[in-house]
C-alpha cells in the first residue's frame, strides 16, 4: 500500500500536466478519481443531492478554469477540497441551507438509518469550526495535515478543534452514547 502513493502521485502529476495543456481526457480522469469523494464531501456539507451535484460540477469547472495554475506537488487534493469547501460555504450563505437533508437516503435497516439521521442532525448543530475537522478527518478520513491545509490552520489547531468537536458531538448525542 505505501508503494502505491508515489505511483499515484506520478499518475496525478501526468494528469495535471495534461490538463494544463488542454487535454479533455485529463479532466475526465481527474473526475473519475476524485468525483465521488468531492460529491460525498459536498453532500455532507450541503445536505442534499441536487446542491451537492451542483457544487461538485462547479469544483471541477474551477479546476479546469485554473488549470494553468495547477501545481503537481501533491497539494492538488488539498486544493480541490478547499475549492469544494469554499463553494459549499457560498451556497450555504446564499440559500441558508442549515436544515437536516430533506432527501437523506433511507439505506439499511430502519434502526441504522435513524442512527445516521440522529448523528448528522447533531453534527449539523455544531459550530462550523467543529464540523469541518469532523467531516474531513473522521468522515472523509483525510490526515490531520491535509485537513489543516484545507482549512488553512495549523495541525495543532486542527487537532484541538477535532477534539473539542468530538466532545461536543458526543455531548449532543448524549443518551444515544449511553445506550449503545
Amino acid at each position: 500500500m505505501p508503494n502505491d502513493a508515489p505511483r499515484e502521485s506520478l499518475a496525478e502529476k501526468r494528469l495535471l500536466k495534461a490538463l494544463s495543456e488542454g487535454d479533455p481526457n485529463a479532466l475526465g480522469q481527474i473526475y473519475e478519481i476524485y468525483g465521488e469523494r468531492i460529491f460525498r464531501f459536498t453532500y455532507r456539507f450541503l445536505g442534499n443531492r441536487t446542491d451537492a451535484e451542483d457544487a461538485t460540477a462547479e469544483t471541477f469547472l474551477r479546476v479546469l478554469r485554473r488549470s494553468a495554475e495547477l501545481r503537481a506537488d501533491g497539494a492538488f487534493k488539498t486544493w480541490l477540497f478547499r475549492i469544494a469547501r469554499n463553494l459549499c460555504i457560498d451556497k450555504l450563505r446564499q440559500h441558508k441551507l442549515l436544515e437536516l437533508p430533506p432527501d437523506t437516503p433511507l439505506e439499511g435497516s430502519e434502526e441504522r438509518t435513524t442512527l445516521r439521521v440522529t448523528v448528522h442532525a447533531a453534527l449539523n448543530q455544531l459550530p462550523q469550526e467543529y464540523q469541518d475537522p469532523l467531516v474531513l478527518c473522521d468522515l472523509e478520513d483525510l490526515s490531520a495535515q491535509e485537513a489543516a491545509n484545507i482549512l488553512e490552520i495549523s495541525v495543532p489547531a486542527l487537532k484541538s478543534r477535532l477534539y473539542r468537536g468530538r466532545k461536543a458531538l458526543r455531548d449532543k448525542l448524549g443518551s444515544l452514547m449511553e445506550g449503545t
Binding site: E53, P105, L139, R170, T180
Partner: peptide
C-alpha cells in the same frame, strides 16, 4: 463514549454517488 462517537463517524458510509449523480 468518545470512541463510540468517533466510530459512528468513521463507519458512516456516506451518501451514495449513484450513476445518475
Amino acid at each position: 463514549t468518545l470512541r463510540q462517537t468517533v466510530d459512528l463517524l468513521k463507519n458512516d458510509p456516506g451518501p451514495e454517488f449513484t450513476e445518475e449523480s
